[in-house]
Structures are given as structure tokens and as C-alpha cells.
């Protein structure tokens, strides 16, 4: 390596996420699904063993995917390939970095490996995306080195209500910081349990210092457009595509609705004749232990 080149800088890591804006990142469990996603216009795929809906129904400990399967997906597509590590499982992250995945998702969808600590993400050359339910959580993850944030939502439910709650909390929190003066910002940093310097940066710039995607329960083109209008830079779709009646059409339709999220006619056109959406879950039917968004802090 030429020593005048610097790899793994924060600009290179967060810049990678800038290139994904306005796009859809799809969960896939094999090379065939990855090709369908790429063909539909996905900006990246997330390689995992089981989509969240199956993790929910089958139970057990959910872990990092088999390197063999990740390699097969990397071979199959030219778009970026992301993969998930368990919260706090920095060795899974080291393995994923060695496999040269393009982004690591330190994800609450997998069973946490550490209940008190998240991964020290700044120590890696590969960038990380992390979930957040509110502004304080987002800023804590950025403080640890996350180069991209996604609202958590409630994965594997096909129900967008939690994604909306988390996105409104993050975006509303950012708006609120904009009207506070300096003394109030320190108090707000205390309330948010977030690093003061980041709180101040957000107050001055009116946005997060990294790209903000949304995830967890997006199942229809209208869901995707809703999240974009609420302020998301892009969309993760998990179970919503490959647990639906017609994944090929639904994948392309969600891409179209994400591109043209401000144009109701285009969203209407994208929503036509897609067959059955995935069967959703009502939040009230989930026990506290089933709620994935509560994992991590």
C-alpha cells in the first residue's frame, strides 16, 4: 500500500454512506435474493442467515452469518454488501472486516453479546451503521465511531409504527436543539446522555453528522415514502420484500417509491398490483421480551 494513501478515515467511512442516500438496502439470505435485489435497483444488500421475521418465529440465538454465505453474496453482486454483528461482539466485527464486507451493522436484530458495551467502532477501518430509537442513542453510537445511523423500528413485524416513533424522536430532537442557547445545550446533552460536542454540532447544523436511514417494519412503497418524508435519507427493508407474495415486483416498487417519495402519483403507480404484503404483527401482541428495539442503549 502506498503510504501517502490513508484508509479508514472518518470521511471515507461516513462518505460511503453518503453515496447510499435516496436508496434502498435490502436484507437477503442467499446469492439468488441478492441478484434480485441488485436487479430491482437496491443500493446495497444486507447478508444474513435469517430475515428478522424468521428470527422471531424460530427463536434461538441469532449470530453473525456464515462467511461462506457472505462470500457467495459478495461474488454474486457488484453493489456493496453489508453484514450484521451482534451488539458488543467485536470479534464478529473483526471477522466481517477480514471478509471485507463494505459496512457492518451492529444490530439489535441479532442476540446481544454484551449488555453493557457497544463495539468501539472507531478502531475499525470498515464503517459501521447502528440502530437508534432516539437522538441521544444516535449520538452515543456516533461518539463510538458509527458512520451511519438507522432508526431501529421493530424489525420483522411488517408494522411501521415503531419506525415512525423513532424517526420522529430523532428528527424532532434535532429540531429542538436548533432553538436552544449554549447553557441549555449542556443541560440537553445531560438529558440526552450524549457527548456535548456532538450535541452542539447538531444544534449548529440542523442534522446528524452522519447519514440517517430508517429500518424496522417497512413493508410497502407507501411505508418507504412515509419514512422519507419524515426525514430519512434512505430505507432498509428486511423481511418486507422476501416475506411478501411477489418479491421481484415489491423490491422494484419500494425502490421507485423511495426515489419519488415526494410524488404521490409515482407512489400510487408503484403500489399497483404487488400481491400480498407480508403478514404484519400488532405491537400490543408482542411481549416485552420480544421487542428487539429495547436491545442496546
Amino acid at each position: 500500500m502506498d503510504n501517502s494513501q490513508s484508509t479508514g478515515t472518518f470521511r471515507v467511512k461516513s462518505g460511503m454512506a453518503q453515496m447510499l442516500k435516496g436508496g434502498v438496502i435490502m436484507d437477503v439470505v442467499n446469492a439468488e435474493q441478492a441478484r434480485i435485489a441488485e436487479e430491482a435497483g437496491a443500493v446495497a444488500v444486507m447478508a444474513l442467515e435469517r430475515v428478522p421475521a424468521d428470527i422471531r418465529s424460530q427463536g434461538g440465538v441469532a449470530r453473525m452469518s456464515d462467511p461462506e454465505m457472505i462470500g457467495g453474496i459478495q461474488e454474486a453482486v457488484s453493489i456493496p454488501v453489508m453484514a450484521k454483528a451482534r451488539i458488543g461482539h467485536f470479534v464478529e466485527a473483526q471477522v466481517l472486516e477480514a471478509l471485507e464486507v463494505d459496512y457492518i451493522d451492529e444490530s439489535e436484530v441479532l442476540t446481544p453479546a454484551d449488555e453493557a458495551h457497544h463495539i468501539d467502532k472507531a478502531a475499525f477501518e470498515v464503517p459501521f451503521v447502528c440502530g437508534a430509537t432516539n437522538l441521544g442513542e444516535a449520538l452515543r453510537r456516533i461518539g463510538e465511531g458509527a458512520a451511519m445511523i438507522r432508526s431501529k423500528g421493530e424489525a420483522g413485524t411488517g408494522n411501521v409504527v415503531e419506525a415512525v416513533r423513532h424517526m420522529r424522536d430523532i428528527v424532532g430532537g434535532i429540531r429542538k436543539l436548533g432553538v436552544l442557547d449554549h447553557e441549555e445545550l449542556m443541560t440537553e446533552a445531560k438529558n440526552l446522555q450524549a457527548p456535548y460536542e456532538l450535541v452542539r454540532w447538531v444544534a449548529e447544523n440542523g442534522r446528524l453528522p452522519v447519514v440517517l436511514f430508517t429500518a424496522g417494519g417497512i413493508a410497502t412503497p407507501a411505508d418507504a415514502a412515509l419514512m422519507m418524508q419524515l426525514g430519512a435519507d434512505g430505507v432498509f427493508v428486511g423481511s418486507g420484500i422476501f416475506k411478501s407474495g411477489d418479491p421481484v415486483s415489491r423490491a422494484a416498487a419500494i425502490v421507485k417509491a423511495t426515489t419519488h417519495f415526494k410524488d404521490p402519483k409515482a407512489v400510487a403507480e408503484a403500489s399497483r398490483g404487488l400481491g400480498e404484503a407480508m403478514v404484519g404483527r400488532e405491537m400490543g401482541d408482542l411481549s416485552e421480551g420480544e421487542k428487539l428495539a429495547a436491545r442496546g442503549w
Binding site: 470521511r11 456493496p80 471485507e100 464486507v101 463494505d102
Partner: peptide
């Protein structure tokens, strides 16, 4: 040549 410099871990800055 797309992705000619390799995957993301090889992304870099250079003068």
C-alpha cells in the same frame, strides 16, 4: 473499471 480500487476497506484519501 467499476470498484477498481476494491471494496470499502480499501477506500482512501490521497493528495
Amino acid at each position: 473499471e467499476r470498484n477498481g480500487f476494491g471494496r470499502q476497506v480499501h477506500s482512501f484519501e490521497k493528495d
